[in-house]
């Protein structure tokens, strides 16, 4: 499932970034380019963090920004931005992020397979660390495929 969405075109690697808004904006670009989401969707993701805080950090070092299907999703999509140096989502050290994974869901339930696989992948701290240390999108794809074969 997620290997269909996370590929050379949707995985980006960068050393550092200025702030969390830029991180979400950059992470979302592949999905804007491949017409999965609109600019409105990107703005809604940023607004909801401004309103509710960094609740999108699902596990240490990993953020899963997303909004609702009706807020600008054209088709299902996932993209991943890997930052070598963590970006802060608040002044709290619990809110440092190295992996930004943008989720675009088309309805309330069809992305359940994607979420299950992301939960298995990111629930293992070793996978998160390996993805942060990776030097190419191929390395990240290998980590994902290895995990998918386990479960």
């Amino acid at each position: 499932m997620i290997e269909q969405y996370l590929n050379q075109n949707t995985i980006q690697l960068q050393e550092t970034i200025d702030d969390w808004q830029s991180a979400i904006t950059l992470a979302a670009q592949p999905l804007i380019k491949n017409h999965s989401i609109s600019n409105e969707y990107l703005q809604t993701m940023i607004n909801s963090v401004n309103e509710l805080g960094p609740y999108i950090i699902i596990t240490p070092l990993v953020a899963l920004p997303h909004a609702r299907p009706e807020q600008g999703v054209q088709k299902m999509g996932l993209s991943l931005l890997r930052l070598k140096q963590a970006v802060a989502f608040s002044n709290n050290s619990d809110h440092l992020v190295n992996l930004v994974i943008v989720l675009a869901a088309t309805d309330n339930s069809s992305h359940i397979g994607i979420l299950t696989e992301l939960s298995d992948l990111l629930g293992e701290e070793a996978n998160v660390q390996a993805m942060i240390a990776a030097n190419s999108s191929d390395e990240i794809i290998t980590i994902i495929n290895t995990q998918l074969q386990l479960t």
Partner: peptide
């Protein structure tokens, strides 16, 4: 509960 009702809340529901 999560803000959109389709991201983290869905994952936690499955795990729970």
């Amino acid at each position: 509960v999560c803000s959109s009702g389709l991201g983290s809340s869905f994952i936690i529901e499955m795990n729970a």
